[in-house]
Amino acid sequence: MYDDRPVIMVLVAALGLFIVVFELVRQRKLKEQYSLLWLATGVALVVLAASRRLLDVVAVAVGIAYPPTALFLLAFGFLLLIVLQFSVVISRLSNENKKLAQEVAILQYELRRIAGDGEPGETTDTEV
């Protein structure tokens, strides 16, 4: 037998997480596609923390002597997944960002060439 308090703490925190994430999605501050892993984290933690028996089974299955630790391990695993997802998304965004920057540079030059008479120069030219 072990102290219930860590499990209750995780249960409360996970419920809070679930509600906050759900609310962020509802308010369109978080995109559904990025909320999935967060919601899965919340659900998994709530289910395990709410059912003492299930938690014990999982802990025994992976050889963890003190079952509440399994909750933290699970949370840690989900966090790794979420952070990895962020890295992937950041890479994609930076690639898209790069393409936009290239297009902006080219468009700006062509626009100035079309609009400007002669050389596309600065209005604040000073002698070199």
Binding site: K98, Q102, A105, I106, Q108, Y109, E122, D125
Partner: peptide, 20 residues
């Protein structure tokens, strides 16, 4: 002043909006 120099030189000057 690289960007302003490029403009003055009359070359095809592509200005990246930030360091890419």
């Amino acid at each position: 002043a690289t960007g302003r120099i490029a403009d003055r030189l009359g070359v095809i000057a592509l200005h990246m909006p930030f360091n890419v």
